[in-house]
Design a protein around this nucleic acid. Structure first.
Lengths: 238, 238
DNA sequence: TTAGTTATTACTATATTGATCAGAATATGG
DNA sequence: CCATATTCTGATCAATATAGTAATAACTAA
């Protein structure tokens, strides 16, 4: 233990599931690989190595900026760490995976000029919080091949999201500062994978989360405009 | 990316919070450090480095066996990964922390001949799932100094346990195969930090978890003997 | 002005949870 | 053998939370 560097040891990376909700579906940012045959699929989560002396959260911010061009202000949190020796055929890489969440508009705008990136629809076979792998779909519904163990990671990510949705404010990270309650409902439906009734949902939402009605209303809609709400953000805690 | 080993990179370790419940309190296995001045405290979670080509779960099993003499069959799961560069003053060590749970009798028996190990009572200041650091107490109630960021880790561990208690079978990992419902209640009370009423608890427990009454009863008690139950173990899933 | 559609509130029914009470089972002490 | 203390266990009742349905409000478009 005198010299931590004297023996070869696994590399450490972060992988990011950058998410948004659009048209009632959950999307994840994927990056095209040019070594698909080697890594098991054409598409992978963006990631990068944790440098010596760098906090993993710093690596996350760096990868977000370098590979996707997205700035700070985006919500992220740790998911889990995957370190099986065979998960990366190029060597033993231990990956600290994170979930990052942004409003769809911000995300689309940020990656518009990056052809190697795509937003893939994420679906799972299993109900509730059963657990299992996820699938990534292209716009035309074709399945995208996922590299490494990223199908497993995305499955665990959906499971985690479903669990935290009710008891934390994580769902609001998908929305801009002002939002309608219907928009929140669509986020929940996309993540949970089944429709919800508006009245009970709206009640639970206003009971459990600190929301402030702004008095302003949505514009441009064809029918009765919905009121815009704000989340009363709590002092920083996980 | 051609040679993953060509640049110095952080080391990877696992740290283990090995837990049990005894006399209505939560205990964690701690290891005495002989370098307290350097690492910030006399006591630390047992841990070890992840070797090249080794799955972190294998490291957990190895540390469990090497440092505590405990065999397999003990429940464990990943908690979170801590990697701030300053957390270990000896170098940049990224730690994948795990929770391990065993019945108190098994744990006491396993470490009886290991003077460098102790079972410390774990307490937290905060209610519910607020979050924050934990404290470790000796038998006489004196606070034990915790090394590294282990007070934070133990706080996060308590928060996690509290969250999973109702919705998973994790509480049963603290108990032997056959147990009374009162024993389960004591586990929950120790983790939640407040007393529970027996009738509602018993109902929720039998509703949410698959329990089988064995027909056998506890022996040796002074009053009405409680029935022994078994957990109907589900097929392996997290 | 009316029809069409969505947002929001009001109301009702159901399920879940919490607390109290009463009977059952056992050892102990008279 | 009987009363008593104590815990286990199930039943009962109250309070709360949740789900579903219906009614009303607000707006656009024709």
């Amino acid at each position: 233990m005198t010299d931590l560097q004297s023996f070869p040891h696994p590399s450490v990376a972060v992988d990011l599931a950058v998410l948004c909700v659009e048209d009632g579906a959950l999307f994840c940012l994927l990056m095209r690989r040019d070594d698909a045959a080697r890594v098991g699929g054409d598409w992978a989560l963006p990631g990068g190595f944790v440098h010596m002396g760098e906090a993993p959260e710093t690596t996350v911010a760096r990868v977000l900026a370098d590979k996707t061009g997205l700035g700070p202000g985006i919500h992220f949190e740790q998911l889990a760490t995957y370190g099986a020796p065979g998960r990366d055929p190029r060597g033993h890489v231990i990956s600290i995976t994170h979930i990052a969440i942004a409003p769809a508009e911000a995300l689309r705008a940020g990656i518009a000029d990056k052809p190697e990136l795509t937003l893939a629809r994420i679906t799972v076979d299993w109900p509730g919080e059963t657990g299992g792998p996820a699938r990534a779909l292209a716009q035309d519904g074709a399945a995208l091949g996922l590299a490494f163990d990223h199908a497993t990671i995305l499955g665990d990510m959906v499971k985690r999201l479903r669990g935290k949705l009710d008891y934390t404010d994580i769902g609001f990270a998908f929305l801009p500062r002002r939002f309608t309650l219907r928009a929140v409902q669509e986020v929940h439906e996309a993540i949970l994978g089944h429709p919800l009734k508006a009245p009970p949902f709206r009640r639970k939402l206003t009971d459990r989360h600190a929301l402030r009605p702004t008095g302003r209303h949505q514009t441009g809609g064809a029918f009765r405009p919905a009121e815009l709400f704000e989340l009363i953000s709590k002092p920083e805690k996980e």
